[in-house]
């Protein structure tokens, strides 16, 4: 089993992901530069956070149109799991692999802090090791994390059980106060219709070891690996 970790100019969470996959979990993973056009040899793909291409144009917009993304789409079409975290989520919406868009935080400030998330569905390759309704602590670090989609799109996300994580308070309530960026319906993470592509603004790789204050994020990666093993 081998996981591709995509690197764009300006990616900066790539090595954290590599650390979690290789050092914490003992999985084979490889950094792949954005000019690579063939990812067929991998079983899954992670698009890490950062500021690809300086967030020029729009966050994730340039990265979404690089050669490697054609192959990321191909892997997604083949049913392999693909995770985009933070800037990676922005890349996935810009490339059309996920619905909606990520826009400037409602209070236009870079927010870097722990966030509580509620697990909305366990019926995805990335959340099978959680309980529905479980409250997680996973940090956020972004300025363009305000999830936007029009009403019909939001309705279809709900109907198809594609909302994976929501920002909540410590008691699990999805209040306005607990919403760090103005996201519609407090959405922090969604999957594709087929559920094998996940985008999330919070950083599970920064919450994958108890020494960091939370290991809740590790189960996102462990769920993905279990899904790959069972394919």
């Amino acid at each position: 089993m081998s996981i591709a970790v995509v690197q764009f100019g300006g990616s900066n969470c790539d090595l954290d992901i590599m650390h979690v996959l290789k050092d914490v979990m003992g999985v084979d993973a490889e950094l792949v530069w954005y000019k690579e056009e063939n990812l067929d040899r991998f079983d899954g793909v992670v698009i890490p956070g950062g500021f690809s291409y300086g967030d020029y144009l729009r966050a994730g917009a340039i990265a979404a149109r690089t050669p490697i993304m054609n192959s990321v789409k191909k892997q997604a079409d083949a049913g392999k799991p693909v995770i985009g975290i933070c800037n990676g989520f922005q890349v996935l919406t810009e490339s059309g692999l996920l619905a909606g868009a990520l826009t400037t935080n409602s209070y236009p400030k870079f927010r870097c802090e722990p966030a509580y998330l509620r697990v909305e569905t366990t019926d995805t390759p990335f959340t099978s090791m959680f309980h529905k309704g479980e409250i997680l602590s996973i940090p956020i670090a972004h300025m363009e994390g305000n999830y936007y989609a029009d009403e019909p799109t939001l309705a279809s996300l709900e109907k198809n059980d594609q909302v994976v994580f929501r920002y909540v308070d410590r008691n699990g309530n999805a209040t306005d106060e607990a919403n760090p960026n103005g996201s519609r319906e407090n959405i922090a993470g969604i999957v594709s219709k087929r559920k094998n592509v996940l985008g999330m603004m919070p950083h599970p790789e920064r919450a994958s070891e108890e020494v960091l204050g939370s290991a809740d994020g590790l189960r996102v990666f462990r769920s993905m690996l279990e899904y790959i093993s069972n394919r």
Binding site: L57, A61, A101, Y148
Partner: peptide, 8 residues
């Protein structure tokens, strides 16, 4: 294709 995002 690039300069605008038709969603927003």
């Amino acid at each position: 294709k690039l300069i605008a995002n038709p969603i927003i």
